[in-house]
C-alpha cells in the first residue's frame, strides 16, 4: 500500500526524521508526509489537497472511490497533531474543482472545523478552485507574505526568490543498480521551494519535465523525496528522467 496511506492508518506518533532546509535564509523542515513546517512562525504548509476529487469525477460519470477526502484529511490531522501549528497554510488547489467546497458532505466539514479550532487557516486560491472556499473556517487569499517568504499557488516565472509554491506536484526518480523508485518530493534550490502534492489522489510530475524548466538553479537543486519515515535528499544530478 501507498506508504502515506499506511501511515495515516497506523500510529501517527512514530518518530520521523524530516529534512532541515533553508529557503531564502528561512529555516524550514520537510516532513515525510509531504508538509513543510516553519518553526519560527509555528506555521505548517501543505499544498494541492485536491479535496473531493473523487466526487468531482463522479459528477462527470466516473465513480472514483469516495474516500479520498477522508484519507487526505486523516493525513492532515496527523501532521497537524505532530506539530500543533498556530497557522496552517493550504497552498491552493484545496479542492479539485470549483463546486467541490460547496458540495462537500457535512461530515468532512466537521473534520475541518475540528482541525481548525485554535489555529488560523489560510486557503490560498488555486487554478482548480479560484473562487475561494465555501462555508469553512479560515480566510482565502491569492497570495500571502510571511517572514520573508511569499506563498502562492503557481510558481512565478519572473523571480522565485523566497517563494513557496505548489501546483506542479513535483516527483523524482532515483535509480540504483537497475532498480527504479519514483516518489513525490519537495524541490528547492535554496531560493524557492515547490511543494509536493498532499492529496492522496494527486499524481506527480517529474522534476525533469519541461514545466519545471527555468524555475530552479539546477546546480543547486535538491529533491527531498518522501520516504516511509524519513526524507531522502538527492541532488538533481543524481536523479534520472
Amino acid at each position: 500500500m501507498n506508504h502515506r496511506l499506511a501511515l495515516a492508518a497506523a500510529d501517527m506518533m512514530n518518530p520521523v526524521s524530516g529534512a532541515e532546509i533553508l529557503v531564502n535564509g528561512v529555516a524550514a523542515l520537510c516532513d515525510p508526509l509531504g508538509a513543510l513546517y516553519l518553526p519560527a512562525d509555528e506555521c505548517l504548509v501543505v499544498s494541492d489537497l485536491h479535496l473531493e476529487k473523487g466526487a468531482a469525477f463522479a459528477r462527470r460519470g466516473m465513480m472514483l472511490p469516495p474516500y479520498d477526502t477522508l484519507a487526505t484529511l486523516n493525513l492532515l490531522s496527523a501532521v497537524i497533531a505532530r506539530y500543533d501549528p498556530k497557522i496552517v497554510i493550504s497552498l491552493g488547489d484545496n479542492f479539485h474543482d470549483r463546486r467541490g467546497s460547496q458540495l462537500m458532505p457535512e461530515e468532512f466539514r466537521a473534520m475541518i472545523r475540528t482541525l481548525a479550532s485554535g489555529r488560523e487557516i489560510i486557503w490560498i486560491n488555486g487554478n482548480h478552485d479560484p473562487d475561494g472556499v465555501f462555508d469553512l473556517p479560515g480566510r482565502s487569499a491569492d497570495e500571502l507574505v510571511l517572514s520573508g517568504l511569499v506563498f502562492r499557488h503557481e510558481p512565478s516565472l519572473i523571480s522565485g526568490r523566497g517563494e513557496v509554491a505548489g501546483h506542479l506536484h513535483p516527483s523524482a526518480t532515483v535509480s540504483r543498480r537497475g532498480r527504479y523508485v519514483r516518489r513525490a518530493c519537495f524541490a528547492t534550490d535554496g531560493q524557492r521551494l515547490v511543494m509536493p502534492a498532499f492529496g492522496v489522489l494527486s499524481g506527480g510530475l517529474d522534476l525533469r519535465h519541461k514545466a519545471m524548466h527555468g524555475l530552479f538553479d539546477r546546480s543547486a537543486l535538491t529533491a527531498h523525496l518522501l520516504g516511509r519515515d524519513r526524507i531522502y535528499s538527492v541532488r538533481f544530478s543524481g536523479l534520472i528522467g
Partner: peptide
C-alpha cells in the same frame, strides 16, 4: 493511487 485508496 485509486487502488491504494480503495484498498485502505
Amino acid at each position: 493511487l485509486i487502488y491504494d485508496v480503495l484498498r485502505s
